[in-house]
Design a protein around this nucleic acid. Structure first.
Lengths: 141, 141
DNA sequence: CACATAGTATCACACAATGATACAAATGTC
DNA sequence: GACATTTGTATCATTGTGTGATACTATGTG
């Protein structure tokens, strides 16, 4: 299973999806400082999208201070955390709201409370365990 | 606080947000069978968006079998569950993935495991408690 | 019947995402 | 050191889609 996936059907722009995925990989330790990302052409090819779209995602993360890109050399992770952008209270509301949406989705799909809790526990373990990953995956596409 | 909110800044189209919100309200019992939704013009006005956008959301939910609309009469809830659209396994993957995204977001924002658990518990209680709501809210905007 | 209310249809506009293509900088190779 | 290769960057066009303004139609009400 490729680590990075995008959905062409989603209303969310592909480059936004990519940015989110990479942020998650970096935050979870799947991508560490010094890690090289695949060239824009390669990743674009793997995902079946245009190289501009990948380039845009890389650039946004570069602007955010997480990546560093240079012609001929490639793109590499230079930080694992970024300075928060919004006010904490707003940030918290936003998070709570996406979380609520995800949980509601589960209920809409017919999951009961226990099933949902099981899913949550699994994901919590995976995400917070990522701080000290057991295996060092290729971590890209 | 209005029950229905949309974010004009979000990359997700407004009508998609509306559909999701209404689905959640219906699934959580905030909107029951027979409940009338506000007229498209009113809701559009309350939210500061165009009436077409609201109409589109209503129509999508009508097509999904959750609402019934008629000129002059308004729009009412006619069902609280819709038939699942995809195969269960795919559906589950999708849910797990949005959930993972939401949780990763929390981590990226700097929340620790305990804080995240607190947020989750609160939302779980809210959403699943909705089956038997204490107060019968206006439930719209 | 007249008027208000509510959903529906049509049309236009603007923006943004994506893609094709060309350019520029760094690196490696002989 | 010249040249090809690799990699990111810039430019431009296209197209889809979301949103909005406006007009139309059906239902309810007095």
């Amino acid at each position: 299973m490729r680590v990075i996936t995008v959905s062409l059907a989603s209303p969310v722009p592909i480059h936004d999806q990519l940015v989110a995925e990479l942020r998650r990989l970096i935050a979870s330790g799947g991508l560490r400082i010094g890690h090289e990302l695949p060239p824009v052409r390669q990743l674009a090819n793997d995902l079946g999208i245009n190289l501009n779209t990948v380039a845009r995602a890389y650039r946004e993360l570069t602007d955010a201070g997480l990546l560093a890109s240079a012609r001929g050399r490639g793109t590499v992770v230079i930080a694992t955390v970024e300075r928060p952008r919004g006010r904490p209270a707003e940030e918290r509301r936003r998070i709570e709201s996406t979380l609520a949406a995800a949980l509601s989705d589960a209920k809409i799909a017919g999951l009961d409370l226990d099933e949902t809790r099981t899913l949550i526990d699994r994901q919590l373990a995976r995400i917070w365990a990522g701080d000290r990953p057991h295996r060092q995956p290729d971590a890209t596409a």
